[in-house]
Design a protein around this nucleic acid. Sequence first.
DNA 1: AAGTGGTCTAGACCACCTT
DNA 2: AGGTGGTCTAGACCACTTG
Lengths: 235, 235
Amino acid sequence: MSARSGSRLAWTDVRDEIRARILTRAYKLGDKLPRDADLAAEFGCTRTTVHRAMNDLAATGLIERVRKGGTHVKADPVTRATLDIPITRLEVEALGLAYSYRLISAASALSPPDVMHRFGIEVARPMLQVAALHLADNTPYILENRWIDLGTCPEIANVDLAAHSANEWLVRHKPYSRVELRFGVMGAQGDAVQHMGAALGAALLVMERITWSGDDPITYVQSFAPQGYQIRAYS
Amino acid sequence: MSARSGSRLAWTDVRDEIRARILTRAYKLGDKLPRDADLAAEFGCTRTTVHRAMNDLAATGLIERVRKGGTHVKADPVTRATLDIPITRLEVEALGLAYSYRLISAASALSPPDVMHRFGIEVARPMLQVAALHLADNTPYILENRWIDLGTCPEIANVDLAAHSANEWLVRHKPYSRVELRFGVMGAQGDAVQHMGAALGAALLVMERITWSGDDPITYVQSFAPQGYQIRAYS
DNA sequence: AAGTGGTCTAGACCACCTT
DNA sequence: AGGTGGTCTAGACCACTTG
């Protein structure tokens, strides 16, 4: 146990000790762990403290907890990590590069089937479609093709999208309650070739972001980044 | 407030109410929120319950908490999401496809500088380099180029890597305490062309995974996936 | 039906950071 | 220096799910 003797036991100490037992295989994959109450007795702390430690381990995907079923070390561990995506302008500036932004087009239209599918809606809704290019030191950084729900977000119609990116405006003015991200890859074609100066077929990272406020669609963005762009996640 | 009248207030109700106030901009970006104790009084619950609700919101990146400084709605929100990456075999099988695996090469070597850099170590260590191909319905699914630390993980030398993928063996036998992931993109070349049957320059998703047990390196993998491969994250 | 984790209260003390 | 969030205890009740 890593707690300094004399000091009270912290929940992180309990967590680290349990994790250590799993790492050293004192508890093996699939094993059932003692009940919270028994661990609390062993560690000389409250069940609440053990509970918090176990909760943290469950959140990282190392263990699984089921009422009455008890706590088990996961038999098929998954690699779980957390991903932070800042506002694109801040991301560029954090790299020490000069940010600029160019509006390509903005037009109202009913949501096409693929966009409806992403949002999980059955009926087409009026949306604003915005294409824009983010640049770093005048080099294309991210090309985005975005759909914004005009029902959920009517204010966007009055925003000067040539001056402020929809990315930044939405993040600052329309907090979401749920988000889904998808990452993939494709060869450059069409707009990407035209606006990013990419060679036809050049490798592009494709990033899709879908956000909702409750069950209401906010925005769906398809972003394209050239080779060299990197996304980081950590545990 | 969404709690059924008569029932006790749950921490999720408090969280949802606070979140709703942020979404509706009753609390604006950058605003300071009331002290936990005041919110507890308003909601008629304990400070502990408010604390748990606020902690959850802080974990999703919506608010920021500082001792003595109080709780603020984040002024520069980030899109935060969680990513799960299963064992590759299970991922393929979950798609309803037939999984197979082919060992390409395995050889001991001292860690080269780029690998040391990924692990954040200064001194070269003996490692096992393993190249392997995962297939789905006999089509190349993921090509991986892996380095395994023989100091942290000597047992790997006795594993029949032609029969079991290092991916699965490590995940099952060497739980990590920390992981870092990176995603990028590149055009196919060298091994990718040779082993995946990719056209030269074809877009490939590059996924790097670095794991540690405490401060000890476990493995560094560079994985390549062809167009069509997709990674999902959610909040 | 019963056992296990999940949550809430009430109170206390602590640690950290801002003022 | 003082206020705020962070944590721990002790006890109770609840909810889910398994045997």
